[in-house]
Structure formats: C-alpha cells, structure tokens
C-alpha cells in the first residue's frame, strides 16, 4: 500500500518536472530520424577506378566492363589518373588490366591502410573466375547452415536494439540516481524516513517510474519504426528486465555517494562502458572478451531477436532471467547500503 502511494506520488512529480516529456520528445525525434533520414539499408559501395588496356577492349572482359552500369566501377582513360582519383575518395581502389607479353596482368592499387590479409584475399579474389575455369580445378567445399533461420534485419531495424538498450534500458541508471539525490536535496527523504514506510518501498517506487518511462519510450519507438514486425510480448518482458537491471545498477552506484555531482562520474563511466558493446554489435568480427562480458552485449542481441520472425526464445529468456536475477541482487545490495546512508 505504501509502495503504491509512493509510486503514484513519484509519477505525479515526474510529470510535473519536464523530464518525462523530454524523454518522449527525444524518442519521437529518434523515430523521425530513423524513418526519414536513415535509409532502410545502407549500401556500402566502394568505387573502383579501372584502366583497361586498349588491346583488351574486344575481349569478353572488356565488353563486360564497358557495358556495365554499376556506379562502383569507373573506367578511366589514363592509367596515371588513378592515384589522383583515389586520393579524392579514400574508400576507393584502383586497378589496371593490362596485356604484357601476351599475358594478362591485373595491376591493383590500394590506398595503403589495408592489411596484409586483405591484400592476400583480394589477390585470390581477382583470379578466382580464371581459376575456376582451369581443367584441374577442384572444389571440395560444401556449406552447411547451423542456425534455424538466416534472417537478416534491415539496417534501419537493426538500429533499434541500440536505441532500446541505451535509452530505455540504461537511461534508468543515471536518472534514478538523479531522482534520489533530488529528494535528498529537497529534504523530503528525511520526512519519508520517519514514517512506517520502508527504504525498499521508496527505492522500488523510483524504479517503477523509470520503468514506466522506459516502457513508454521503448514501445513508442518500436511501434512507430517497426510496426507490427515485432514480438511485442517478448519485447515488453525484455524491456522490463533490462530496464530494472539498469535502474538497480544505478541505485547501487548512487548508494556510495552523497550527491549527484559526486556520483555522476561513476554513473557516466558505467553508461559509456556499457555503450561500448555497440561497437561489437556493428562490427561482429571485433568482439574481444572484455566487450562480451558486458551485460549490454547480450542485451543488444536479445533485443535483436525479438524483431526477427523466428526469434531464438531460449537466448532471449535466458538473458531475461539473468537480468532479473542480477537486478534483484543489485537492488538488495543498494537497499542495504541506503538503509544506512539515505538519511545521513
């Protein structure tokens, strides 16, 4: 009963500060950006400036190159122009297909920052068609897909998990601390402390506010951007679990400090550390252990699953359960600390 009273009061107060409105507006801005500025799929096209030896124009390759309509392949008349053109576009490569002593030569020019491995792969890739046509060529490679589905999300939808994790899940980390310190400054915590209500009721009520805000902004964004292509039940449960986890961590950190300014450093570092998982989310080949152990890493992928047609529910609910358990642990620890320090 006390919990409900506190929660309703906190809800009232947070609507009277601008905070909730700002969060909703921000979510709407993100939606607008996602829908109207971000293309549905990124097309990465690296340009290739190619010079073709005039002697090769009549060949099959020559005809293929001259009749191509791809933007990526640009034929140049002068081999010497290639370095200059490449300087203007640092993502491009250059190449000359020449005929030397009756033999075809692929003279590839890279920028210079590419790695040894990359060069080796390119070298092989250039000759693969030729190699495949040789009589002694043998390919003994077969491919098997392990995953139940090889669904890919559009690049736009792929961005939603990032937003959901950082804004709806981890926003709480910081804001909950701010709420508590605001109460401390106002002195209202002391008034609360001399009533029969318990510390955990106070903390839980704050958690509730963050949860309401997180759910509101998260669902608003998901609905407007992804429409019906979301498993909403799983999304809501995951949002709740990740949000309370973030808030519980925020409470725990805040319990070590007297005011928001002191706590901000630790909170800030924690949020940014968690945000690093985004790098690996976008660059799957770069996943050092130090990022894999961050809770935000599986959180990102769990959110991604709920947007797939056939989500891996085992994965989603394993981590949902884990976040809930961790949330409880951090909450208990925070409660113990706050019992001693809240009114000091």
């Amino acid at each position: 009963m006390h919990l409900l009273t506190s929660f309703l009061k906190d809800l009232k107060v947070s609507f009277k500060t601008f905070y909730i409105y700002i969060e909703i507006i921000m979510a709407l801005i993100i939606v607008l950006v996602l829908l109207f500025v971000i293309p549905e799929n990124f097309t990465s096209s690296a340009k290739a400036f190619i010079y073709l030896d005039p002697a090769l124009l009549e060949t099959e390759l020559g005809e293929e190159l001259t009749s191509n309509t791809l933007d990526e392949i640009v034929l140049v008349d002068n081999k010497e122009d290639i370095p200059r053109l490449m300087e203007e576009d640092r993502n491009s490569v250059g190449g000359a297909i020449l005929l030397e002593n009756g033999k075809m030569v692929y003279d590839l020019t890279l920028q210079g920052y590419e790695s040894e491995r990359f060069r080796n792969v390119i070298e092989k890739a250039l000759t693969v068609d030729m190699v495949r046509q040789l009589p002694d060529y043998e390919s003994k490679v077969s491919i098997e897909t392990l995953g139940e589905s090889s669904e890919r999300l559009s690049d736009r939808i792929n961005m939603l998990p990032v937003f959901l994790v950082i804004n709806s899940a981890f926003m709480g980390l910081f804001i909950i601390a701010a709420y508590i310190f605001m109460d401390k400054d106002e002195g209202t915590i002391k008034a609360f402390a001399v009533t029969p209500s318990r510390v955990w009721e106070y903390l839980l009520s704050k958690l509730g506010i963050i949860l309401v805000t997180g759910l509101m902004t998260g669902l608003l964004t998901a609905v407007l951007v992804a429409g019906f292509n979301v498993h909403y039940v799983h999304l809501i449960i995951l949002l709740i679990a990740s949000n309370v986890f973030g808030s519980a961590v925020g409470l725990f950190i805040a319990s070590f400090y007297d005011n928001i300014i002191k706590a901000m450093g630790a909170l800030y570092i924690t949020i940014i550390t968690f945000a690093f998982a985004t790098i690996s989310y976008y660059m799957p080949s770069f996943t050092p252990l130090v990022i894999r152990i961050l809770p935000s890493y599986p959180m990102l992928f769990a959110f991604r699953e709920v947007f797939l047609e056939k989500p891996d529910l085992g994965y989603v609910y394993t981590y949902t359960a884990l976040f809930f358990i961790l949330a409880v642990v951090f909450f208990i620890l925070a409660n113990e600390r706050f019992k001693k320090t809240l009114t000091a």
């Binding site: 009963m1 006390h2 009273t5 506190s6 009061k9 009232k12 107060v13 009277k16 500060t17 106002e186 002195g187 209202t188 915590i189 002391k190 008034a191 609360f192 001399v194 009533t195 029969p196 209500s197």
Partner: peptide, 30 residues
C-alpha cells in the same frame, strides 16, 4: 513511526506538490 511525528528545522516538503497534495500523500504512509 506510526506513534511519532517529526517536524524538521529545514522545511522538507515536495515543492512540486500542492500543500494539500503534500499532506494527502503523507497521510497514506501511515
């Protein structure tokens, strides 16, 4: 805490609530 009442030297009311709102909220905690 049901049996005691505490009046503080520094006022510590909820600034964003009305006077009535402050009392109505507080009484529900008992």
């Amino acid at each position: 805490f049901n049996k005691i009442g505490v009046s503080f030297e520094q006022s510590n009311v909820y600034n964003k609530l009305t006077a009535l709102g402050n009392l109505e909220f507080y009484k529900k905690l008992f």
